[in-house]
Design a binder for these strands. Structure first.
Length: 508
RNA sequence: GACCCGGUAGCUCAGUUGGCAGAGCAACUGACUUUUAAUCAGUAGGUCGUGGGUUCGAGCCCCACCCGGGUCACCA
């Protein structure tokens, strides 16, 4: 404890001093009559309605919050406290509080939680404020929060930080401190919750049933990715954290639950970057008797409804771009878009031609890549980064899509779409493959790739094939990367900014 | 996994050819009863990411490692 910094040492001493004065620094509860924002609003309403007294005072209020700023003036002080709704200014005067109560304020610091009682009024600079008549300490802060000085633009409400808390690493590792000093970070996560709520509401209203499927699986599937591997001791068996919900949800469609969805975490043992976290939130839904065309229409309706309800606008600022969420979204066939980018019809190019093109662009990792993989690589390099506005990319090569039905009339393709926003894949959908014999062949092809060293190729799942053999109706299915959608809708540059506790390395 | 940039006071950052460790904010003491990046005067606060090495002397140079950010690869 002799390692404590000077600042923390001082706070411990204040804690002791409070106790020696008979003040308990960690209270049990506090009954508030209002919130910071409600108090300001109701004061403004009373003011407009002429319901203030002769002295300009409004009603009495009780509220609790964290002290986020302090301006002492000898025998008076101004402070702001912040609660879940926002912040409100306090005015503390010695002649109102009395000597003992006012002098005890010397033991209060930024970051402390207090409960106050007082009367609303408006200062001569125009800010609605509580003239505090009583205050009580609710929790003493022993570690200084990294509050910067905040300049709030009176017109725009925009916050400018001076000497603030900007170290990304510490902000992610100590998200509690990041949240405590950055109201706008709290807002991102409120918006995230709202987005997920609206996705759920949309699917509920469309007649989908929310279900829960295993996160801990004896076999993993439904996507091409490496899994996290773990072990069940009693069963003495290797198990995997799910990389997708797909195969379980489609089993449910076989069972007659013909519209199902799940919003949950998936886990992929892959790299970490601006748009990838090892655990991430996926929404998946499956709708019997629909195909991918139907699902494109559904995705458009969902996007518009969610964006309308959450943001109230259809233009989303994202970095340097303005993204217009106005249906119908652009639709391009993957092969056509690539033909355009290559200035040559892909169908006229041989595998060797494609490989030459890829090598000319110095695209790495081409060893053993088949035609589908080459097309995918070239698409990823030439087309994908430009897909800023909402765009459906259609009809992927069959070898890339082992769970999707063949494209009608073009058996080398599949009925699949990916919807891109801001250069990121947000939705991925198929007309689901429901022919059990075809599915078995596709799995076997994947096993071939696996044997050849592709550890992301999908595994043959006999139980899933058995389910398909019982009969799955024609079904359209969609996966939605929730975190990425939240990034776009909250204009955050990294997936870590929309995940409360992103995966980081240990610091020991 | 590769490359680039970074890690110095609670926070944000300076730190010259290698020569006593600096500022602003926060803290502390004092002044101040309508301020709001409050103001004014003063005081204190440091294993310079970790471990080695070179040197009379290392925040600075060399080696290794840890952590983060960015770019790329993989992937949603």
């Amino acid at each position: 404890m002799d390692e404590l910094s000077q600042v923390m040492q001082v706070r411990r001493e204040k804690l002791d001093e409070l106790r020696s004065r008979g003040i308990e620094p960690y209270a049990y509860n506090f009954d508030s009559s209002t919130t910071a924002v409600q108090a300001s609003e109701s004061f403004a309403t009373a003011e407009e309605g002429g319901r203030l007294d002769e002295g300009g005072d409004g009603e009495s209020v009780r509220l609790a919050g964290r002290i986020v700023s302090w301006r002492g003036h000898g025998k008076s002080a101004f402070a702001h406290i912040e609660d879940g709704s926002g912040s409100i200014q306090l005015y503390l005067k010695k002649d109102v509080l009395g000597d003992e109560s006012f002098d005890t304020l010397d033991l209060i610091d930024l970051g402390d939680w207090i409960g106050i009682e007082g009367v609303l009024f408006r200062t001569r600079t125009g800010e609605s404020t509580v003239r505090v008549t009583n205050w009580t300490l609710l929790s003493k802060s022993l570690r200084p929060l990294p509050f910067g000085k905040v300049e709030v633009d009176a017109d725009t409400g925009e916050r400018t930080y001076h000497s603030g808390f900007s170290d990304q690493e510490t902000r992610y590792r100590q998200r509690y401190a990041d949240l405590a000093v950055h109201p706008e970070v709290r807002d991102v996560f409120r918006t995230r919750a709202h987005i997920i709520r609206e996705i759920r509401t949309f699917l509920d209203d469309e007649g989908f049933l929310e279900v829960e499927t295993p996160a801990l699986q004896p076999l993993y599937g439904g996507a091409t990715a490496r899994p996290f591997v773990t072990r069940h001791n009693t069963l003495d068996r290797t198990m995997y954290l799910r990389i997708a919900d797909e195969l379980y949800l489609k089993r449910l469609v076989v069972g007659g639950l013909d519209r199902v969805y799940e919003i949950t975490k998936d886990f992929r043992n892959e790299g970490v970057d601006r748009s990838h976290n090892p655990e991430f939130t996926m929404a998946e839904w499956y709708q019997a008797f629909s195909d991918y065309e139907d699902q494109m229409e559904l995705v458009e309706r969902m996007m518009v409804q969610v964006v309308d309800r959450v943001t109230g606008t259809r233009t989303l600022p994202f970095g340097d771009h303005d993204i217009s969420v106005e249906p119908p979204f652009r639709r391009i066939r993957l092969v056509d878009s690539l033909s355009e980018a290559l200035d040559a019809d892909v169908d006229d190019l041989s595998d060797d031609d494609l490989r030459d093109r890829a090598e000319a662009l110095s695209i790495p990792e081409l060893d053993g890549a088949g035609r589908g993989k080459l097309i995918d690589k070239l698409f990823g390099e030439l087309v994908e980064p430009g897909l800023i506005q909402p765009t459906f990319v259609l009809d992927h090569p069959k070898e890339l899509s082992p769970l999707a039905k063949e494209k009608r009339g073009e058996p080398h393709l599949t009925e699949r779409f990916e919807m891109y926003l801001a250069g990121m894949e947000i939705f991925n959908a198929f007309s689901e493959l429901n022919d059990p014999l075809d599915q078995r062949e596709r799995f076997q092809a994947q096993m071939g790739l696996r044997a050849a060293g592709d550890d992301e190729a999908q595994q043959l799942d006999e139980d899933y094939l058995r389910a398909l053999e019982y009969g799955m109706p024609p079904t359209g299915g969609v996966g939605l990367g929730v975190d990425r959608l939240v990034m776009v809708m909250t204009n955050q540059p990294s997936i870590r900014d929309v995940i409360l506790f992103p995966t980081l390395r240990d610091t020991e």
